[in-house]
């Protein structure tokens, strides 16, 4: 993420890795949640980085979605992704929260993760960045 932010010339907003990590801690579901006021230019930079990362990761995202589409014949990739994501959430998110408990439920969270991946795949272009931005501003 840091190297990508440098490529996008965000050195002033994110001078080091800690500055990105601090912004990520604005997520109230994290164990290390810190309530800071996210400035608009920081929000915009994070969105741009997300969109750019989705562009780099598109082949992987697509393969996982393809595995989900053909779950009966090729479930391995989707299951690996699903398990890994749940492990990461358990490590980093506040597992006492009911919302996080729902997220780490293997059976019920499938559709939610499908939606996240689909949104990332849709947001991997300039138009996609606009789509994501408008969606988040509408929340």
């Amino acid at each position: 993420m840091y190297s990508l932010s440098n490529k996008l010339s965000y050195q002033e907003i994110f001078p080091n890795k800690v500055s990105i990590w601090k912004l990520r801690c604005n997520n109230p579901l994290r164990k290390t949640f810190v309530s800071n006021n996210l400035k608009y230019y920081e929000f915009d930079a994070l969105l741009n980085i997300t969109s750019e990362m989705a562009k780099y990761l598109y082949p992987y995202i697509r393969s996982i979605l393809h595995s989900l589409d053909n779950y009966n014949s090729r479930p391995e990739l989707w299951n690996d992704f699903h398990n890994r994501l749940i492990d990461l959430i358990k490590q980093r998110f506040n597992t006492e929260s009911i919302l996080v408990k729902k997220l780490i439920n293997f059976e019920n969270s499938k559709n939610f993760y499908r939606k996240i991946l689909l949104i990332l795949a849709i947001c991997q272009s300039e138009d996609g960045y606009d789509r994501l931005k408008i969606y988040l501003l509408n929340l």
Binding site: I61, L65, H66, D69, A121, Q124, S125, E126, D127
Partner: peptide
């Protein structure tokens, strides 16, 4: 269309737009 194919088509349209 599967999710993968749907996003492929949408990305083709995005490329056309850009």
């Amino acid at each position: 269309l599967g999710n993968a194919e749907f996003t492929d088509v949408l990305n083709c349209f995005d490329q056309l737009k850009q």
